[in-house]
Design a protein around this nucleic acid. Sequence first.
DNA 1: AAACAAGGCAACCGCGGGAGG
DNA 2: CCCTCCCGCGGTTGCCTTGTT
Length: 325
Amino acid sequence: MGRIPCCEKDNVKRGQWTPEEDNKLSSYIAQHGTRNWRLIPKNAGLQRCGKSCRLRWTNYLRPDLMRGKFTDAEEHTIVKLHSVVGNSTLFLLPAGRWSLIAAQLPGRTDNDVKNHWNTKLKKKLSGMGIDPVTHKPFSHLMAEIATTLAPPQVAHLAEAALGCFKDEMLHLLTKKRIDFQLHQAGNNHHHNQQSSAGMPAFVAAKHEENDEDTIEKIKMGLSRAMQETGNTNINNNWESNNNDQLPASSSAHFGISSMFQCGGEPPSFDGDAWSQSMCTGSTCTAAGGENRRGRMDEEKLDEDDDDDDNVLWDLPSDELMNPMV
DNA sequence: AAACAAGGCAACCGCGGGAGG
DNA sequence: CCCTCCCGCGGTTGCCTTGTT
């Protein structure tokens, strides 16, 4: 038996809302509240689906909404919480993950958070070499899988992985990193000779570097990660964290920080406080280098001091705006 | 200056859960 | 217990803006 539509689609307007429609909806809700969305458009004199009205209200018209850019702190919270509730099916969370995350960010809607995650944060994490789904470094993900396979299968895995990541990696290595290098080059300007194309020598070199070279480097990194895995407690970490009472509280531990404790390759850093704050643990501390403390703003440092001891993703319940699960 | 590409955001769609008859 | 309806969620699409060539 098919589900009946929430409204008759022929008679409803769709697309962008006009200021008049916004006014009608806002004033109606101000007077009558938001009970029964199906009746609201009729009573408010709107040719809209009730669902559309609800979305417009919750995502745009609500007076408590905060517009504007996400702050670093908000982004930090999103990433933290996403590492915990990201795989909501695993923990059988009663509420959706986006709404749960949004509940911790006053003035932000789940749609806001979801859009921000999809358009910005995912790329940001990828750019740091971290898988935005599992919050683990790409190299460790591959290494984890590789440890369960026989050597011939590992070779196939590497090839398959390269196929998957090739485009993304090439993009990151040949385009985005150039920005960073440009910045670096600015400090060593006199060392860089101009190429025939008029671009700095290092940029020209990047362009000339063919795909095969890049792939070779990726392969080396992958095999190095797999070798290092043999000497570390990567699986112990993973298993112990999973075997313990799984839900949210413990799951926070097996995110990025626990993986970084394993001695594998750290993600690449842009050097900004945000990216460094996404990573703690012995390896990252070393990789982050001396300037970490120097660069991070003092207030943030104080906040994160507890996290520095390997457990960035531990979220004390009193730190949350709304308690979860 | 124009064309094209990429990014960002608002809105839509379909599905599932829960409440109530 | 079944059915209907409402609500809310995540995924996706489409359009507008901004950046790049």
